[in-house]
Nucleic acid binder design. Structure first.
Length: 279
DNA sequence: CGTTTTTGACCAGCGC
DNA sequence: GCGCTGGTCAAAAACG
């Protein structure tokens, strides 16, 4: 995953050790090892970034539930009755929702508003135990396999009432005692969107391999060119524009959540009044 | 031959 | 209690 290295450093490193007189000479083993170690470092870095995003999300969820618990005038909003997650029969666990889209933030926002009109990404009474992720994937590919770095064993598939696309059920098979399950289903409204619901928490470390992470990233970037998707995805993540979009998208989630903005306003005004009363 | 996937059957929760 | 539905089980098939 050489393209995942920070680009200025990469362009320098690639020329190290290459003799100008023999440009066609194959790279030395030491160079390959160096590249491999750089790739591993980059994988770690990306994984840390992913964890940071998840952590930030969890912190927000915890903050929100505290605000709701304290009776600040926020009422939990029920899960919308949408096609992918009907609520008629089963109690749906509180979920956090993360949308991952490599191409367009507007598209994801529009989808979320369409898919979950009342939730608009974070408007639910939420515990971090269940996480829902929206993935942009190739609609022509019928596979419900989402490579996210963990090992999953499929144990069931079911066509649900309100969605013609089957829902696949997976258990984490990396550790025999790991209780984590996930459900994968295409959105009834947009077949290019996979809805992945993670249930539970892994009781083992992240089985980090460059291959699995690369595959997750290739799906993450929503790119269909199998041969070069990893490189393109890595380039996209390194791309400042991509990171800007990611930050914008996270900011939009928070801004669009009226509960969050109200809570923020309350917190600011509280602090403001504290200062006034202190004087 | 071990692992994974498929798929029909079964179970449990919920509304009526 | 009954029927509907989502979730899980487990045997058979497929795969590497």
């Amino acid at each position: 995953m050489e393209s995942c290295s920070p680009s200025p450093q990469l362009s320098l490193d690639l020329n190290v050790g290459l003799s100008p007189a023999s440009p066609s000479q194959p790279p030395l083993a030491s160079e390959l090892e160096a590249k491999l170690s750089r790739m591993n470092e980059e994988n770690k870095r990306l994984h840390e970034m992913l964890n940071m995003v998840i952590e930030t999300n969890d912190k927000y969820m915890a903050l929100r539930s505290k605000i709701v618990d304290s009776g600040n005038g926020f009422s939990p909003i029920k899960e919308p009755q949408n096609a992918a997650f009907p609520t008629k029969k089963r109690k749906i666990n509180d979920t956090s929702t993360i949308s991952i889209n490599g191409s367009s933030s507007e598209r994801t926002d529009a989808f979320l508003q369409k898919e979950s009109p009342s939730c608009k990404s974070f408007q639910e009474e939420i515990k971090p135990k269940v996480t829902r992720i929206f993935l942009q994937c190739d609609p022509a590919n019928p596979s419900l396999v989402v490579k996210d770095g963990y090992q999953w064993r499929k144990y069931g598939q079911k066509v649900t009432r309100d969605n013609p696309s089957p829902r696949a059920y997976f258990k984490c098979s990396f550790a025999p005692s790991c209780p984590v399950k996930k459900k994968v289903q295409r959105s009834a409204e947009d077949e290019s969107v996979l809805i992945v619901t993670y249930d539970g928490k892994h009781n083992h470390g992240y089985p980090s391999t460059s291959w699995s992470e690369n595959n997750f990233l290739s799906c993450y970037a929503g790119n269909n060119n199998a041969g070069s998707d990893v490189e393109i995805a890595c380039r996209e993540i390194q791309n400042q524009e991509f990171q800007t979009i990611l930050i914008k998208q996270m900011t939009n989630f928070l801004i669009q959540d009226p509960s969050f903005t109200t809570a923020l306003a309350n917190a600011i005004s509280e602090k403001f009044f504290e200062n006034i009363t202190d004087v």
